[in-house]
Amino acid sequence: MKIINCPLNGQRNAQEFVYGGEVEPHPNPHLVSDDEWASYVFIEKNLSGKVLEWWCHVPTAYWFIAERDTKLDEIFKTYDPSKIFKERIDFLPPEDSSKKTTESAVNNMHNTDSIKKNTTEGNS
């Protein structure tokens, strides 16, 4: 059985974890078209290669992020979600114009460079 390294609990059998899907920015429903929203809800990217995934350690209900290669089934790195999700996210309609917060958080997730940067920080 595969071992997964939980950032909180250390190395545990995969049986102690549940998979939570790909790490994908939750779009602000006010800022996306119906099609974009439908693809967020129903379409998984299913990439072959390195991906970011949500995993939950069930006994502690602790969510974390894993960098996994789907082809090799190898997990390179795991870390607390706060490494990527640093600030409060709001989903306000455009006229409320606190849009900045929303966009920066969503961009933070969209931007792979920033993900890379964050994970390197997480690793150091």
């Binding site: 549940v18 939570g20 939750h26 949500w54 939950c56 209900a61 969510w63 979600p81 706060s82 999700f85 640093k86 600030e87 409060r88 996210i89």
Partner: peptide, 14 residues
């Protein structure tokens, strides 16, 4: 429900 709540707030940071 509990697990979903924790998952959402891992992103929302409320």
């Amino acid at each position: 429900v509990y697990r979903q709540m924790l998952w959402f707030n891992a992103q929302w940071r409320l």
